[in-house]
């Protein structure tokens, strides 16, 4: 059924493309695809839709700390241009303006300031946090209220995942003795990324888990936990790799030290790329509709978007799994009681 529909719409799109609808759109190609990058990037306001000339946006607080002006808090809507009602780089508030790449800049470029604004992604994170806390705490309520009984409701949805993270990620990689210590971290990591990925798939949701700052932060957490818990064997492996002749150590040790940092770097890049790419692909298919302005392309694109969305659901889960799995592996390597293999 679906395949038939797909092939018919593809056929239609080819025919109709040749007929070529009159292009009515105003503006150049740039403006038709221009919404893609702003979506996957951060912003100081949450833009949902533009109906006619009215922008449906949620203004968010801008929080700036600078040594000379102290802490300043004001709404991002203050940066709006009075005519277009969009953020314009010509509007300067308290000596700051937002440039075309959605970056807060000081009008006086020599000034030093720190930007702690509640941006679109931070607002998204609060929603994700609320959802996670609601889910987990209501699941936990079941275990507190009626221990020993079969899980019900949210608990029955959460429990297999918790068991999976514990038995398939933490236990085999970290080992029996120490896995209990790290399971809460891995569980939080998994659900934080997974729920973040899933909520990010909603239309007009922010690309929180596909943001390099977030993946950087999570990778740093894994890096810190790994190296704080590294035992003697782990450090010995880095600085005096056993079984390697002394001259070779000159090469091996730097490689090992670089290896300490490439691990979290890989974590950071993998999640960022996977999620951001998915968003870009979906948005590109949507952009095709505006570029071609054809019903047939609209149908085909929509089908593709639905299809990619299903894949993204899969990717959301896989990436959460992979990030957690690799974190568990790195921690496991650091705390492993050796068994020297050489």
């Amino acid at each position: 059924m679906l395949r038939k529909f797909l092939s018919i719409s593809l056929l239609l799109s080819v025919i109709l493309l040749n007929v070529s609808f009159p292009v009515l759109a105003a503006g150049d190609g740039e403006s038709k695809t221009g919404f893609i990058l702003p979506h996957v990037m951060d912003n100081y306001e949450w833009h949902f839709a533009t109906i006619g000339h009215t922008h449906v946006t949620l203004p968010l607080p801008v929080i700036v700390y600078s040594p000379d002006q102290g802490l300043e808090v004001f709404m991002s809507s203050q940066f709006h241009d009075h005519e277009t009602h969009e953020i314009s780089e010509n509007v300067v508030v308290n000596g700051y303006y937002i440039d075309k790449t959605y970056k807060l800049k000081a009008a006086d470029s020599s000034r030093v300031f720190y930007d702690f604004s509640i941006t679109k992604n931070v607002a998204m994170m609060f929603i994700i946090m609320a959802v996670i806390l609601f889910l987990m705490l209501s699941a936990a309520k079941h275990y507190r209220k009626s221990p020993g009984t079969a899980p019900k409701g949210i608990a029955s949805f959460i429990e297999p995942i918790v068991v999976f993270v514990r038995d398939e990620i933490a236990l085999p990689n970290i080992g029996h003795k120490k896995c209990l210590k790290f399971t809460p971290y891995l569980l939080t990591l998994f659900f934080f990324i997974w729920i973040g990925n899933l909520l990010g798939l909603f239309p007009e949701a922010a690309n929180f888990t596909g943001n390099i700052s977030l993946t950087f932060t999570l990778a740093i957490f894994t890096f810190i936990i790994t190296n704080l818990n590294g035992n003697k064997d782990y450090w010995k492996h880095v600085f005096a790799t056993p079984g390697v002749p002394a001259p070779l150590l000159l090469i091996i040790v730097p490689v090992e030290i670089i290896g300490l940092f490439t691990k979290p770097f890989a974590l950071m890049v993998r999640l960022f790329v996977a999620i951001t790419a998915g968003h870009i692909v979906i948005l590109s298919f949507i952009a095709l509709i505006f570029v071609f302005e054809s019903y047939a392309v609209g149908v085909a694109s929509t089908i593709m978007v639905v299809f990619i969305n299903f894949i993204e659901l899969l990717v959301a889960t896989i990436q959460a799994y992979v990030f957690t799995l690799f974190s568990a592996m790195y921690i496991g390597l650091a705390v492993a009681e050796h068994e020297h293999h050489h």
């Binding site: 702690f116 604004s117 992604n121 931070v122 609060f126 806390l133 918790v162 514990r166 939080t188 999570l218």
Partner: peptide, 27 residues
């Protein structure tokens, strides 16, 4: 910097709350 700060804070809050009130009883 800002997003790193907020996401670290958010993650730590979630980690703390869940460790104490969710993972502990569930596990």
């Amino acid at each position: 910097l800002g997003l790193i700060f907020w996401s670290a804070l958010g993650f730590l809050i979630v980690l703390f709350l869940l460790s104490k009130y969710a993972w502990k009883p569930i596990l």
